[in-house]
Amino acid sequence: MESGFYGSSLDGNLKCKFEESGLANTHEIMEKAVRWFRSRSIFVVAYGTGCGAIEMPPTFTSRYDAERMGVVGVATPRQADLIILSGYLAYKTLRRVIRTYEQMQKPRYIMTLGSCPINGGMYWDSYNTIKKLDDYLPIDVSVTGCMPRPEAVIDGFVLLQERIRNGEKAGWEKYDENFEFYKENQKRVLGGHIDPSYETDWYNLKSGGKA
């Protein structure tokens, strides 16, 4: 499993060091500053599924211009903070989305558009569509509507920025804490093998590669 910052926006070791040297207050101020910078700079990887993909180009281009709030599209999940899932997810898509989400570096957030990821929407009786995405991946912001207009998507960005600024518990922290729960649900619909399998010891590949 990945190691990282649990529950705090700065490194846990750093926090301990600050508290030891009686600078807990300084740590708090730094954390607040970092949260503010995080809220002002959100790199988005737009995962266009379903009909919502059509709402994203106007959100990011001249008409609605999300860049004025620091929300920019990037090309790869490695660089991204936020993944936008813009509609219903088939089982097949969910597999790719999980893989993309787990490639993103923490802190990472998920935003969904439309009603399909919330309750299945018009695909409520489909045999191969996810009904409630929150069981498989932790959603931070759901923008409802069928489909939401770019104004609503921008409203979602503002809500996410407020949450980051206030230091509320984000989805990735829930995902780390309830990892077994999410993996159990994912396995139920996707079968036993989901990439990436956390069995390979990437740091000791020469010694057999098993953790």
Binding site: E2, S3, Q105, P107
Partner: peptide, 10 residues
């Protein structure tokens, strides 16, 4: 500043 405060697991 945001990128400097991000985690790195790759």
């Amino acid at each position: 500043i945001k990128l400097f405060s991000k985690n790195n697991t790759v």
